[in-house]
């Protein structure tokens, strides 16, 4: 999926460049070199958060709620219902934290990208490299969370394996969205807005409550948000059944990825190559 989208984006502005992948990889490599510092503390927090939600709400509050009836009539435990949503939102959080806060800091304050752009690297390649890095992080979170889900018997190992690539797609889509957002951000204060939006998505994307419980107009609004489409995908993979709706989810997330990445590359070019 990535290999379908990326070469076309990398050849943006007409010039096809064979070295694009290599150059984007060297941007990712730079982030790996930083790992020796205290950066891992930041990374741990991204993993802990969804696990805490799973235990406190999925299992804790779930004990008060009891079982939940799915649209197709099946009864599932509340924790089983919440867990795939936590997985999707963890993928979102991981991707966003790397591509908003960290990305903005590197661009505006460390002026890291100015140095990179004096080398053969181009803006779109920086975007790709940073996104790939956000994905490495995201996949680690997702894999760890899936292990917990299987251990708690909230899903099967086979279904967990199917969910992993889905979380990669979710991460890519949100990463591209976050990066595009960062290029229009003016100051650190704007991050409060992002955090609020992110929290609203986290609460209302069918994460804790099936969207069927909301009035119709609210439900429609929820159904076009990216986290809802992500939750819809992971939940279907976790609990079944998988149908044409999941194809819509996948196409939606691919479109978000393509638009976000193109926008980010273009805006970065405008900002840094004045």
């Amino acid at each position: 999926m990535v290999s379908l989208v990326l070469p076309r984006l990398a050849s943006w502005k007409g010039t096809v460049f064979e070295g694009s992948g290599r150059r984007a990889a060297s941007v990712t490599e730079r982030n790996i070199s930083c790992l020796r510092s205290m950066y891992w503390v930041v990374m741990i927090s991204g993993f802990v958060e969804p696990v805490l939600y799973l235990f406190s709400i999925g299992i804790g509050v779930g004990a008060l709620i009891g079982d939940l009836r799915l649209p197709d009539g099946r009864l599932v435990g509340y924790a089983e219902f919440v867990a795939p949503a936590m997985l999707a939102s963890a993928a979102m959080t991981g991707a966003l934290s790397e591509t908003t806060f960290n990305f903005f800091g590197k661009m505006k304050f460390m002026r890291l990208y100015e140095g990179m752009l004096a080398t053969p690297i181009r803006p779109i390649e920086i975007a790709l490299g940073e996104l790939a890095w956000a994905m490495v992080r995201g996949v680690l979170y997702s894999a760890a969370f899936l292990v917990i889900m299987v251990a708690l018997d909230l899903t099967t190992a086979m279904r967990a394996l199917a969910m992993l690539p889905a979380t990669v797609l979710v991460g890519f889509a949100f990463g591209a969205l976050g990066m595009a957002t960062s290029t229009v951000i003016r100051s650190w204060q704007d991050f409060d807005l992002i955090a609020s939006a992110q929290f609203a998505l986290f609460l209302f994307s069918g994460t804790f409550v099936p969207p069927g419980h909301y009035p119709a107009p609210v439900r429609w609004l929820i159904e076009v948000t990216p986290l809802y489409r992500s939750v819809d995908l992971t939940r279907a993979l976790s609990l079944g059944p998988v149908g044409p709706r999941q194809l819509v989810d996948v196409l939606y997330l691919l479109a978000l990825l393509a638009v976000g990445l193109t926008l980010a590359g273009r805006r970065m070019g405008k900002m840094l190559c004045k």
Binding site: G19, R22, R23, S26, V27, E29, R30, S33, C34, S37, Y39, M110, R111, L112, E114, G115, M116, T119, P120, I121
Partner: peptide, 20 residues
Amino acid sequence: NLDIELTVRENLTTYARFFG
């Protein structure tokens, strides 16, 4: 615009990687 998250040597080796 040196990379403040890297050491002095890493600043050079990482930069070299940008050139392949």
